[in-house]
Amino acid sequence: METSRKLAKYDRLYDQIKQYIQTTEDIWARLATMEAVLHHKMQSFFWTGVYVLIDGDLIVRSYQGPVACQKLRNGGVCWAAINSGDTVIVDNVEEFPGHIACNAASKSEIVIPLRDPEGRIFGCLDVDSDQLGAFDREDEAGLKKILSLLYQSDSVK
């Protein structure tokens, strides 16, 4: 089976990010680097960031794009991913019950729960697009592959 152009691009970004993050095992530095590369290399990514669970709240940790909501009240796409433990893809955020609009230009969204090495969810990767229907299962697969670099320690120099 031939790899799609989108998955091939994610594979190239995976290799690029793997090189960038070799100098540290710090997951926050790694996530910030992933966000920057993804945000600037994927044309449909309008906002790319990480929210983390702190004392039961989802607080923005780092991001690329316009100013974000600092704290997400319960509800919305990020909380749906945190509560379900699964990726949530929304083609039209206006049709998502309880959507939290941090920026009116956001039209579609993908959120992937972040897990520690023991499998506990500690936050989420949140990507918004200013285009409807920008994300699909190929984005999920590509982003999950890149996120797998968070805890790889064999390449640290």
Rank of each mutant, 00 (worst) to 15 (best):
M1Y: 02
T3F: 01
T3Q: 13
S4M: 08
L7H: 05
D11R: 11
R12A: 09
R12L: 07
L13P: 07
Y14L: 05
D15Q: 14
K18R: 15
K18N: 07
Q19G: 09
Q19R: 15
Y20F: 13
I21E: 07
I21P: 04
T23V: 07
T24R: 05
I27A: 04
W28Q: 14
R30N: 09
M34E: 07
E35C: 11
A36E: 08
V37S: 00
L38K: 05
H39P: 00
H39C: 00
K41H: 12
S44V: 09
F45E: 15
F45W: 09
T48Q: 07
T48R: 11
T48S: 13
Y51C: 01
G56P: 03
I59P: 00
R61T: 04
Y63S: 10
G65P: 02
A68E: 02
Q70A: 04
K71E: 10
K71M: 11
L72N: 06
R73C: 06
V77E: 14
V77Q: 13
C78R: 12
A80Q: 14
S84L: 05
S84G: 08
G85A: 13
V88A: 12
V88N: 12
N92M: 06
N92C: 13
V93G: 03
V93M: 03
V93T: 15
V93I: 15
E95C: 02
F96G: 07
P97N: 11
H99W: 11
I100V: 14
C102W: 10
I110C: 01
V111A: 14
I112N: 09
P113L: 11
D116R: 06
G119I: 05
R120C: 01
I121L: 09
C124W: 05
D126M: 06
V127T: 10
D128K: 08
D128M: 03
S129H: 01
S129W: 02
Q131C: 01
Q131R: 10
L132F: 15
A134R: 01
E138S: 10
E140H: 02
E140V: 08
A141F: 00
G142W: 02
G142V: 11
K145Y: 00
L149A: 12
Y151T: 00
D154R: 13
K157G: 12
